[in-house]
């Protein structure tokens, strides 16, 4: 049997969201589709709603009762490990009525916790959607990406204040 290409599960997760019209409250650590969940600062009193319009991924509306240290959107990755993979990339189309910054990273599970490998560029969310592209080299500054890991995630660190943000599209690729 041939192994599935890298990120097959991830692509299916995003495809399910793109084709569906789910909506609801954002609940800590609960997957809104298999493989995608929000991880808020538990001390920040985060409240939020998400909806997934046709052909788009997510529209988010979030408030906090106290200053937040983080709010992550976690996407499970099934990249596997292969000497053939030299790049992990993401493409995101994102917008926000007020300018916002989103920091993406690849989180690799370890025996004692995890290691974050941040992409060099920060995603700018502006009123008119922009396409953001970035890649990490697995043989470069982030050797953890080349090592086997029990799990990996793409984490988008969302704004930590109150915000409205639309993630029109997100693609993850390995090459």
């Amino acid at each position: 049997m041939t192994a599935a290409p890298p990120a097959t599960f991830t692509r299916d997760t995003l495809k399910a969201l793109r084709q569906g019209t789910a909506s609801g409250d954002i609940l800590a650590e609960q997957e809104i589709v298999p493989g995608l969940r929000f991880v808020p600062d538990p001390e920040a009193g985060m409240r939020g709603r998400f909806s997934s319009p046709q052909g788009r991924l997510l529209e988010l509306q979030v408030t906090h009762t106290r200053p937040a240290r983080w709010l992550g959107l976690h996407l499970r990755l099934d990249l596997g490990v292969s000497d053939d993979i030299a790049l992990i990339g993401l493409a995101a189309r994102i917008a926000a009525p007020q300018a916002q910054a989103v920091r993406p990273c690849i989180r690799s599970g370890t025996a004692t916790g995890f290691v974050d490998s941040f992409f060099d560029k920060t995603i700018a969310a502006l009123p008119r959607p922009l396409l953001h592209l970035d890649v990490l080299e697995t043989h470069g500054a982030h050797p953890v990406l080349h090592d086997p890991a029990p799990w990996r995630e793409l984490v988008l660190f969302l704004p930590t204040d109150d915000f409205r943000l639309d993630l029109h599209d997100l693609r993850v690729f390995a090459a």
Partner: peptide
């Protein structure tokens, strides 16, 4: 990709945002 700049500014000022 989108409207002409003057119209773009009107969309932004109106806060017309989101799929529907």
């Amino acid at each position: 990709w989108g409207p002409l700049p003057d119209d773009e500014r009107l969309w932004e000022r109106a806060g017309a945002f989101g799929a529907l």
